[in-house]
């Protein structure tokens, strides 16, 4: 069965411990199997509680970090510090230089464009780098909910242009809610409706909320495991080693 993923839910949707159950219930009713919660300072203990309770609702919960660095050096330093601590790392591309550096860096999972102006940083040349670095672009539903009229129309136009470039260059697109409160969340099918507005191919739209984010998380989980060395190289279990030795002697 297909697993739907909301790759960006802010920790602020869980305002208090009493509401964790209620919010997780709504998220699972909306149809999600996996969510990634963006992290703040001091959220660690609270996150563990959410993770424990999420199992009762059949939900998988992962950690996500949004980076908003001042310059490229800060971006690199932050990535070095935190890459092995979070399943998903996203960079808010409000600056052209940061956008280029993030697109090139394989440690970055997604490029996030929080404003209409920031979308102009995603050009064909940035897209080429993102394609090489296997970095996806992220489209947040919340960005569209928070604007009206002309600004929303322009945001749709610019996002459509970015999506067209991404498809042309073979860059993965992820659609998520980016919700900061529970009423900014939408079900997977509702997130897909944004894909129709952006003229994404019909067969691709469903993947942006299921297979694509799921594969990003799966790859990162295997990279974060203790046995991972390089892509395709893993430390094999000692027991398994003995078994293969025994098989060799048998033959």
């Amino acid at each position: 069965m297909k697993k739907y993923v909301d790759m960006y839910v802010s920790s602020s949707i869980f305002h208090s411990e009493n509401q964790i159950d209620e919010i997780l219930h709504i998220i699972s009713e909306l149809g999600y199997a996996i969510i990634c919660i963006s992290f703040n300072k001091g959220f660690s203990d609270f996150f563990e509680k959410i993770k424990r309770k999420s199992e009762d609702f059949g939900l998988e919960v992962y950690r996500r970090m949004n980076l908003l660095p001042k310059n490229v050096q800060e971006l690199k330093a932050k990535l070095r510090q935190i890459r092995r601590k979070f399943e998903i790392i996203s960079v808010k591309c409000v600056d052209k230089k940061i956008c280029v550096a993030a697109a090139r860096d394989r440690r970055v999972d997604t490029l996030n464009f929080p404003t209409l102006e920031s979308l102009k940083n995603f050009t064909e040349s940035t897209a080429n780098l993102a394609a090489e670095g296997d970095t996806a672009i992220e489209i947040c539903f919340k960005t569209f909910l928070n604007v009206r009229g002309i600004r929303r129309a322009r945001l749709i136009t610019e996002s459509r242009k970015a999506a067209k470039i991404a498809l042309k260059k073979g860059i993965k697109i992820v659609i998520d809610s980016g919700a900061e409160n529970i009423f900014e969340m939408r079900g997977p099918q509702e997130l897909c409706s944004l894909g129709y507005l952006l003229d994404l191919p019909e067969e691709y739209i469903d993947l942006t909320v299921s297979e694509i984010p799921f594969n990003i998380i799966k790859t990162n989980l295997s990279k974060l495991s203790a046995s991972f060395v390089l892509p395709g190289v893993e430390i094999v279990d000692v027991e398994e080693k003995n078994w293969s030795k025994k098989r060799e002697t048998d033959t």
């Binding site: 539903f141 909910l145 009423f183 900014e184 939408r186 099918q189 509702e190 997130l191 409706s193 944004l194």
Partner: peptide, 8 residues
């Protein structure tokens, strides 16, 4: 569907 999604 889009209209329902955008009804906040």
């Amino acid at each position: 569907r889009t209209v329902l999604a955008f009804t906040t």
